[in-house]
Each structure stands twice: as C-alpha cells, then as structure tokens.
C-alpha cells in the first residue's frame, strides 16, 4: 500500500513538472493559432520558425553569448581557483565569501549592479555588455566546481612534476589541468547552461535590439505569443534530451 502511495506521489509530481512541456510540444503541432483548442495536426509553425528572422537571430545570439561566456568564464574561473588555492586559509575564505555574493544575491540585484556599473563606465548597452554580464555571473560557479577537485589533489603532485623538471607552466598544463579536468568540465557545463537559461541579467544588460531567446519570449508574452515559439521549445527540448542521453551513455561506458 505504502509503495502504491509512493508511486502515485512520484507520478503526480513528475506529472506537474512535465505537464507544461508536454502541452508545449503538443501545441507546437497544432494547426490553429489559439491556445487550448486543437485544430488539427500540422508542421506549419516549424516551417514558419525557420523563416522568422527575429526568432532565429535570438537563437543565434543566445548561443553566441553562451559560447563566448563559457570559454572566457572557464579560463578566468579555472585560473582563479588555481591561483587562490595556495593562499592561507583565512584569506581564501574571504575571497570565497566575495565569490559567493553573485551566487546568493538575487539575480535582479546583480543585474542592477551591472547596469549601474556600465552607466558609470559609459558603456553602450548591447552585445558587449550582454556578454560581459554573462561572464560576470558565471565565473563564481566555475570557481566553485573546480575548487573541490583542487582540494582533492595532493600538494605533492605538482611538486612531483616540478621535481621531474617541469616548469610551473608545464606543471599547470601537464599535471594540474588534467587532474582537475572533471571539475573544469562540470564548471564549463554549468556556465553554458546558466548563460543559455538566463533571463533577468540579460534583460537588464542588453540593448541595441539584441535579443536572446529569453528576452524575446518575455517581450512576446506581453504582445501575445507566437506558436513558433512552441516549435522552438520542442526542438530545444529534444536536443537537450538527446545530449543528456548521449552524455549518460558516454559516462556509463567510462565507468
């Protein structure tokens, strides 16, 4: 009996979590424009999606920003984590306290801070400010993913490399980075997903007509959503699912 209750409960919650996604996917194949009523199967919104310049440019910007952000944040964050780990405990704790601020601060406060900063620096809002903002809020997550791996690494490992004649930069590339690779990978993945998924910070720091998928959905929601967006979500969901299955298969092979 309790097993039945447990299963039923899990079913209910997962139903709640997946209901909107299922509705989205179903209605992406709806012929009509109205939400809620089914007017027959059609691929019209998929066809329209691929000729809608506004949506395509938002998708392009989303991936452009996420890619640049991932690369730059990962470099800054990994080097930062490596650089702060030899500091004394108290100083390191203080640095990590500051690192924690963007993680804990409400997004809107971070966004407001960036807006004010940009205005004082005299920057024009657009693609550059958007990318800078994404780098700004993803770096701490990279640091947090890499630090535990670094802590796990025995200090004698880089020492062994130097003992064998490796210069500090060779030690970094040949020993430290290969050792912390899983942390770097999960940090990069986190930066990428956070950037793709972000709305609040993008909303405040973009300008000049540069839209990401999130900001576009938000502005569309105000003037009535275009069912092409449903088609876009369905495609994105399938891609994510595909990537996850692929990654799971790969990790299963490794272990």
């Amino acid at each position: 009996m309790s097993k039945f209750i447990k299963r039923f409960y899990l079913f209910l919650v997962y139903g709640f979590l997946y209901a909107p996604i299922i509705v989205l996917i179903i209605f992406s194949f709806n012929e009509g424009r109205t939400r809620g009523s089914w007017d027959g199967f059609s691929l019209i919104w998929y066809k329209k999606l691929f000729s809608d310049k506004e949506i395509l440019s938002a998708v392009y910007h989303t991936f452009l920003v996420a890619s640049i952000t991932t690369v730059v944040s990962t470099i800054i964050g990994v080097l930062g984590a490596i650089g702060i780990s030899p500091y004394r405990k108290k100083l390191r704790a203080a640095i990590l306290g500051i690192n924690q601020i963007p993680v804990l601060n409400p997004d809107i406060v971070m966004a407001v801070g960036l807006m004010v900063l940009y205005r004082i620096l005299g920057l024009d809002f657009g693609l550059v400010t958007l990318i800078l903002a994404h780098i700004a809020f993803t770096v701490p997550y990279v640091v947090l993913s890499v630090l535990p791996k670094l802590k796990q690494m025995p200090s004698s490992l880089p020492e062994a490399a130097m003992d064998l004649g490796a210069t500090p930069s060779q030690t970094l590339t040949k020993v430290i980075i290969p050792y912390i690779k899983p942390g770097i990978f999960s940090g990069a993945l986190m930066a990428f997903t956070l950037s793709i998924d972000d709305f609040v910070i993008s909303f405040f720091t973009t300008g000049n007509g540069i839209e990401t998928v999130s900001t576009l959905v938000f502005s569309m929601a105000r003037r009535g959503i275009n069912p092409e967006i449903n088609a876009l979500s369905a495609i994105m969901f399938i891609i994510v699912l595909f990537l996850l299955v692929l990654m799971n298969l790969r990790t299963e092979k490794v272990t």
Partner: peptide, 21 residues
C-alpha cells in the same frame, strides 16, 4: 531535465494550460 529548457518558455506553457481558452 526541465531545468535545461528555457524557463520562460516552460512558465509560459502554464498560460496555455490555465488561460480562459
């Protein structure tokens, strides 16, 4: 998995579920 999908789109889907039509 749902967290990997744009959260505004997912939230907006609730409009489809809850709205008058």
């Amino acid at each position: 998995v749902p967290m990997w999908m744009n959260f505004l789109l997912r939230t907006y889907a609730w409009v489809t579920i809850l709205s008058k039509n």
